[in-house]
Design a protein around this nucleic acid. Structure first.
Lengths: 208, 208
DNA sequence: CCAGTTTTTGACTAAGCGGTCAAAAAAATT
DNA sequence: AATTTTTTTGACCGCTTAGTCAAAAACTGG
């Protein structure tokens, strides 16, 4: 019987195999998108036969979905850490630092996530984004509260978050372009990015 | 003889057919990426048979390349318009407005371009970006000059441009995510984005 | 060592892929 | 109207795709 039809918890070996597969799948899906990637190639990269891969994941979509799920959790982490404080601007700056760190450490996950959104893969997008929406809305409320109490400048909180996402993810998602345009600047790129972005948001959000 | 092997200039009919194909190809490639899209589907969308499509474009790669070439020119337009002036901050704001307008009017082209960079399609990336690099570097010089003469605040010009690209394209590329998170705000989204972004860059680049 | 279960394999299928080709149809030229 | 050129078609090719299946192999506990 295929493992994916079972209900009991996976053995250590099963988890190890699934981890190998997910690793290879991240590589392929992030490079070619859902449709462009093939389970044959993923199996080859994971050094196993295709049926063996399909014993551990019932089909291509199930594999992709699992990968996307864990990636979303990773992606969501830095945002969830944003919490109320009496130094809201520094809290936002810390969030930007965490997002930049994420781009630097997990560029493939960032590109997988970007690919999923840009190429509108019809795997129930609403379902994928659902855990994100709740967090997003609560942080919007938090930002709004900071603005209402005059602790940061009043700007549209939605667009504030969008702009932070855009500027920080850009370094992972468009790495190929940046490498082509600033080949000499690739070392220390993220330090420079931080040096550019933090003052920008500090100035924009300062109350005086 | 296949049309693509000819040297003489195309007839009006040929240009019309190619236009129909490119239109359909834009839709498919921007939704599925190079590998994920199929010339069969493109042909079907353009309401013609696959051999007919291949009569007008010699293969999948030639079609994609042509599409990408015109998209790059479109993408490059707003940047090329950036030129020396005695009101550099307003010139930069005008550039941001043009980029936002581009995202709004040509979201599929924006996503095609983003997909090409994110999914590293190995169609000679350097070749694709070549016309971009020259323009990019000359505009970097212009920004640097403005900073050296104290007309805008001294920030890293590379990251300034990257951040403008990121924030403006984000609205086209991640449209699905934004629509999911702010469904009620989709009308007037670009006006709001402008209202958020322009003050941010004005404040950051102001000399006093 | 054996019985039972889990895991892996190799052979296979049906469908879709990118692309070719000769011949028919349509358009343009004379 | 006849001829030549351009365009379109349908049949076809070899290859890859996602996925199945029965049987073999490798573990497992008794």
């Amino acid at each position: 019987m295929a493992i994916s039809e079972k209900t009991s918890k996976p053995t250590r070996i099963q988890r190890a195999r699934r981890e190998e597969i997910l690793q290879a799948a991240l590589e392929e899906f992030s490079q070619h998108g859902f449709r462009g990637a093939s389970i044959n190639q993923i199996a080859k990269r994971a050094e196993m036969s295709t049926p063996r891969l399909l014993y551990h994941f019932k089909d291509k979509e199930a594999l992709y979905r699992e990968l996307l799920k864990s990636t979303l959790l990773l992606w969501l982490g830095p945002l969830q850490m944003l919490s109320d404080t009496d130094e809201p601007i520094e809290e936002i700056c810390a969030y930007i630092r965490r997002k930049l760190e994420m781009s630097r450490k997990f560029p493939r996950q960032s590109r997988l996530f970007a690919g999923e959104i840009i190429l509108g893969v019809p795997l129930g997008q609403a379902e994928v984004f659902e855990p994100l929406r709740a967090t997003f809305e609560s942080k919007i409320d938090l930002l709004q509260k900071w603005m209402d109490t005059g602790r940061i400048a009043p700007v549209d909180p939605h667009h504030l978050i969008y702009s932070i996402w855009a500027t920080t993810q850009h370094y992972a998602d468009f790495e190929a372009q940046i490498a082509d345009l600033s080949p000499q600047k690739m070392t220390g790129l993220y330090t420079q990015a931080e040096g550019f972005l933090l003052p920008m948001y500090r100035k924009y959000l300062a109350v005086e």
